[in-house]
Design a protein around this nucleic acid. Sequence first.
DNA 1: ATATTTAACGAAAACGTTTTCGTGTTGACA
DNA 2: TGTCAACACGAAAACGTTTTCGTTAAATAT
Lengths: 357, 357
Amino acid sequence: MKRKITLKQIARELDVSISTVSKALSNSKEISEDTTQKIQAFAKLYNYKANNIALSLKNRKTKTIGILIPEIVHHFFSTVIRGIERVANRRGYNVIVGLSNESFTKEIINMEMLANGSIDGIILSISKETLLKQDYHHFNATINQGIPIVMFDRVVNEVDCDKVIVDDFNGAVKAVKKLVENGCKNIALITTMDYVSVGRLRTQGYLEALGLSGIEANSNLILKIDDSLDVENHLDILETEITQFFKANPNIDGLFAVNELYAVSAMKVARKLGLTIPDDMQVIGFTDGVLSKHATPSLTTVSQHGQKMGEQSANLLIDRLEAEDNDNEQYFTNNPKDHDFIKVVIETEIIERESTK
Amino acid sequence: MKRKITLKQIARELDVSISTVSKALSNSKEISEDTTQKIQAFAKLYNYKANNIALSLKNRKTKTIGILIPEIVHHFFSTVIRGIERVANRRGYNVIVGLSNESFTKEIINMEMLANGSIDGIILSISKETLLKQDYHHFNATINQGIPIVMFDRVVNEVDCDKVIVDDFNGAVKAVKKLVENGCKNIALITTMDYVSVGRLRTQGYLEALGLSGIEANSNLILKIDDSLDVENHLDILETEITQFFKANPNIDGLFAVNELYAVSAMKVARKLGLTIPDDMQVIGFTDGVLSKHATPSLTTVSQHGQKMGEQSANLLIDRLEAEDNDNEQYFTNNPKDHDFIKVVIETEIIERESTK
DNA sequence: ATATTTAACGAAAACGTTTTCGTGTTGACA
DNA sequence: TGTCAACACGAAAACGTTTTCGTTAAATAT
């Protein structure tokens, strides 16, 4: 078991100084061609690679970015990670992942763990509990420490940073409009409680689309699910709620759900109630994941383009990191550019499948 | 924007030496109570936290473990990550993720990126291309550099390291036996090409179960899918293959599929062909993911317990890392324990749902 | 022959810690 | 009064780099 070789060992072995080795390996022309070749040959032989940690310490940057998300067993979030990893890798960065598990405390602990030198910047999506508490001091704290943050999807105005969001509002508008165009008269909505911003925005989009179409919103047609409980493991509850909802409103002929789980569950319930989709009821969900694609009938959805969100987030963050590098060489450290934060909006797209006509 | 405070700054500010500050913060009794209090108060005020990178360099260990998997938008793999992250976090480790994207080259590049000091050990699952090439030198190389590896799920005998696998063979046996018990006479298999070990093992389990039940295997009832192509994006191809398969074998009354995508697709095809599940055909899939749970009818599956695999892998790795620490204090560095590698087998479990009687 | 440039290399600082090993001051004790 | 612990602290090395700034010797210019 050979430990990795270091500059010092090469130097000792070849009877030169550490500086000489370092320079030779970076092809400095301070070093004669002879020694350079000798050193490079030796280094290659022993497969020398500079130690990342030492470089990080010296350069005061780690070339790794942190990701902090609520959950990873989740199609959307893992898609975002894939996008982040893709551009991070291409641009020479590593990716370190932390999971908040929707918990405020774990979010803070993770942030602090990451902010102690492990990473140059953070890409995150806020946990539900944090959104509920509306306590964002930990974000501002790390930003103040000079660690840039990019927020995606679940963002919040109280924190000044770059943001990448999907156009939840217009996505919902598009979806509901399509239902209207397809002839639906009584369009229902299944949504979450309002504190998750994306749910709120999608609800607003639903209302807006109805308004634009001259349809009066009917609060009976809106079902709000308390997603503080872990729905994945309480499918039965979800399904009974939907069953009651459908029974109470037999006139529903169109349904918009703010996520694919609600949509797919609704289709299941509908079928049990003897309804045919899309003939008796058309359904559109938000978030294009595996469920939508493989459900029967397959589900028409509003795609969020998670991978693109990840890529944009990573590019935004790395751009800012590398801009900082240049700033340091400028005369003004506090140049105004630092406070021009960017908000990227990813356009949604409706993917039509079998659940609509 | 305040940069993080360092020992040196505290020392200068309080007019003591760096060593004193360091000792005071670790409650060394070399330092008087007065100074200790003063320093600790100051440190708390400025929210001092030791810089991780500096610690890593000094201690020659990073307290982070690398994960290298083929794909992250994948229920099983993300479940494993969740498990790893969970125990890593509990035991004070960070987690850094690399994706091979099923590519041999990306796997190597990622390994080298990680092995240059960024991590203490690696947990990985081998990419398809690597399995196909059967070239495992990069794994052995990093092991030889003193970086322990734990392989999960897709493992290989040619590399000496700890391994965590699911009992693919017996899982398949159980599944097929259940089909037999449920009265199936003509049990089909949908599987992958043989180079992915897990597919091969599950196929063998299928054959074994048939043998045990006194049923003669019929090669016509085995459909091998070439999963070198990206099936997710070529569902149509998959479905037509299955359609032909079913049409050619109308006597099929039971089906075992080596993953849930194949199983769900098969159910879809079966329904289109007018078959009712589970009445006309019972179906069991391997890998318990979202699809299985939410399909209609919901799918009986063999659960791999991904999270448990992740947790076991992480524990195995960290155990070894921390055992090494102690070994260094022993007289023998090359003690025989180093070569006793552990293979943990996670038992599968059949989760019964609507697709079987 | 002397001054000056150039080539080739080494010493040392710096990044932020921890830890070992001094060192000076105090108080107790003989 | 002289000796010796005990106490409280500082200097410096080490982890592995890169980079600045010497320094030496040879080569060139004057």
